[in-house]
């Protein structure tokens, strides 16, 4: 399982390194969404707003949706799907590998967007650094959830519109937990219970993904 996970993660990351789809399309989208968030707040509130962590996470959710779509599209071409299927890869390994690659990609984009939030939304740098571990874990959870939902949605013609409907309700608690943890970090408060939400969700998605990915692939 781990061998397959490493193989698949390496393949997905290598494809991103070659195609730069996330770097050249999804990340700029995230940057623009952050700018739009500032514009939506209005000139008076765009800086030093208490809403900054929430907006930051809202942008991350949108970025996640696009990144999941991209991750799933690698195997979406009918021919690729067929020939990869005949490799008979362990589905749990495929799930973990795709999740891990997606997590790494999301964390990379998340770091850039967090730095931008510090600059543009005037989020305190010290607080943003304290919040960093929670951002990383939340993004890893989003990656696992996204990969699972991507597989549930499958490769049909409506996949791109179906994914947000299915995934966003599941992303909601992660948005709340991430935002709360970030806000707590900014005001130097304890944030233990938000970690619980994120870690429980992470464990749940990893467990379901490992168990159910094969069932989804086979259907």
């Amino acid at each position: 399982m781990i061998r397959v996970a490493l193989l698949v993660a390496g393949k997905d990351l290598r494809i991103e390194a070659r195609s730069r789809v996330l770097a050249s399309q999804v990340l700029p989208f995230g940057v623009m969404a952050l700018v739009l968030a500032g514009l939506a707040l209005g000139p008076a509130r765009a800086g030093h707003s208490g809403a900054a962590p929430g907006l930051f996470y809202l942008v991350l959710l949108l970025v996640t949706l696009l990144a999941v779509g991209r991750s799933q599209s690698l195997e979406r071409a009918a021919g690729t799907r067929a020939s990869v299927a005949t490799l008979g890869l362990d589905p749990a390994g495929v799930f973990l590998g795709k999740s891990a690659a997606l997590a790494l990609e999301l964390v990379t984009m998340g770091l850039v967007l967090e730095a931008l939030a510090v600059v543009m939304l005037h989020v305190a740098l010290a607080g943003a650094l304290v919040a960093l571990p929670s951002v990383v874990v939340t993004l890893a959870t989003l990656a696992a959830a996204g990969t699972l939902y991507g597989a549930i949605v499958g490769e049909g013609p409506v996949a791109s519109t179906l994914l947000p409907v299915l995934a966003l309700p599941a992303f909601a608690p992660l948005l709340i937990a991430g935002e709360r943890a970030f806000s707590a970090a900014l005001s130097r408060q304890a944030e233990a219970r938000w970690w619980v939400i994120t870690l429980v969700a992470l464990a749940a998605y990893l467990a379901v993904g490992v168990l159910a990915y094969g069932v989804l692939e086979d259907s």
Binding site: A77, T80, A82, S83, T86
Partner: peptide
């Protein structure tokens, strides 16, 4: 398997 569509990454 060799399909009639492209089969690769």
């Amino acid at each position: 398997w060799v399909g009639h569509e492209g089969s690769f990454y």
